[in-house]
Amino acid sequence: MLQRFVEEYSDSAFTFAYRLCENVEEAKELVQEAFFRLFKSWDHFDQSQPLEKWFLTILKNVYVDSVKKFDRRNMVPLDMPVRHEDGEGVSIAETIADERDEAVLDMLERRESEGHLKAALAGLTKEHRAILALCDMQGLGYDEISRVLGMPMGTVRSRVSRARTALREGLLKRTAGMVAYGV
């Protein structure tokens, strides 16, 4: 049973971990730790539940651990949520849709967009990356995301929206000529 679980879900778990920390070695560590922890207590898991429920646990473990770990690449500062409803200190102003959307849409439709998308993702906070990874890459619903991240569904909804706004801003910076040097 556990072996089947590994076969079915280790790739997805790794993908999620990789999106969070953008580093193969760290992602491996996170996934390993998450699975080991689950293995330690698996015998009192409800084994009639679908394996997918266990997978949510893995995702949660990966996320929590990645948040605990300090980012070794940048000494300071760190973008970690600290039990705050909305981890961002800055309120991202909700922009009224405008013609810049044309530029973003245009870029997303081009073949070379993946590079820009990756770069824009890397520029997001870890929380934003996590929620987009869960929502769009793992394809989880808001209720599942709320269980993985430990927040109410209303928060999930607004957080996803903000993450998308932030991603769009990131993509915009790569299209039009704002001179922004993210260091």
């Binding site: 790739d11 439709e109 993946e114 990756k118």
Partner: peptide
């Protein structure tokens, strides 16, 4: 479109 683009991003497989 951004949802779709993220979903179809090449996902690194577990080593």
């Amino acid at each position: 479109k951004s949802k779709q683009a993220l979903a179809s991003m090449a996902a690194p497989a577990a080593p």
